[in-house]
């Protein structure tokens, strides 16, 4: 990929490789969902993945933390090869945070317990320390006062910010976002995007599947367009939006930016 070599020039992005995907293929039964995916992500990169629904963009990032299994090719995350070895999978998952479209908070636990659960059980952290860290990140996403409530009592935007805080409590080196704002009311999208922007400004390596093109322009250093299970085009946001090369990309952009 031509872009991969260029990224090192962008400030805040290092030469170190965070994720490397080589020749990766995935099938659902006979259906070929992902075809020959090659992608290298440097540490500190902020990548936005967009494309029509069914193009495999969610499946791609869900393969990175093995929520979906790939059948062919190689994925290396943070130097660990993703194989069927459960130890490697658990190691990668504890280093990679993920936010879902439907938040997936644990409804039977309070906000604070949602955030401290993984540090206590996976990192074996003492409860007091885990709570301190959780409060730090809840403050960062601007909802420390909700710590003792249950997810069902929060608005969608607040729940998504808790989900981000919950991932951050594991001190991940990479964050994956799977359409984090698609299930939100319009007035709540901004609060979630603001949280993601501030995360990007701190140099977190991020892969976002999103249709928020304003967000892509503001923080992404690379935009990837996928269609029919393949990476069709990738470029810097300015070039990508102003001067799309492929016909398929032009059509897609005209549809989502048309009004």
């Amino acid at each position: 990929m031509a872009m991969a070599e260029n990224t090192a020039k962008i400030p805040g992005v290092s030469d170190e490789v965070a994720i490397s995907i080589r020749n990766m293929n995935k099938w659902y039964g006979d259906f070929h969902v992902l075809r020959d995916i090659d992608l290298t992500v440097q540490r500190g990169e902020r990548i936005v993945i967009c494309g029509p629904s069914g193009s495999g963009k969610s499946t791609l990032i869900r393969c990175i933390n093995a929520l979906e299994e790939h059948q062919k090719g190689e994925i290396v995350v943070d130097g660990t090869v993703l194989s069927s070895d459960l130890k490697n999978i658990d190691k990668i998952r504890s280093e990679v945070g993920m936010c879902f479209q439907h938040f997936n908070l644990f409804p039977h636990l309070t906000i604070l317990e949602n955030c401290t659960l993984a540090p206590i059980w996976v990192r074996k952290m003492p409860k007091a320390e885990a709570e301190e860290i959780a409060m730090h990140f809840l403050t960062k996403v601007k909802i420390p006062e909700q710590a003792d409530k249950y997810p069902g009592q929060l608005s969608g935007g607040q729940q998504q910010r808790v989900a981000i805080a919950r991932s951050l409590c594991m001190k991940p080196r990479i964050m994956l976002f799977d359409e984090p704002t698609s299930a939100l009311d319009p007035e709540m999208i901004k609060e979630v995007l603001d949280t993601m922007v501030s995360l990007a400004e701190e140099g977190m390596t991020m892969l976002c599947v999103t249709h928020e093109m304003g967000f892509a322009r503001q923080v992404a250093n690379r935009v990837i367009f996928m269609d029919a299970g393949q990476i069709v085009e990738q470029n810097e946001p300015e070039e990508f939006f102003n001067n799309p090369k492929s016909e398929r990309t032009q059509l897609f952009l005209s549809q989502i930016l048309g009004h």
């Binding site: 879902f100 997936n104 644990f106 059980w121």
Partner: peptide, 24 residues
Amino acid sequence: GQYEAADSLGLDYWQAIRLIILPQ
């Protein structure tokens, strides 16, 4: 999504079952 959230946080099968799945 509950299984996926538990998985994505790095909980192993029995932890996910005991802490997330069974209580609910």
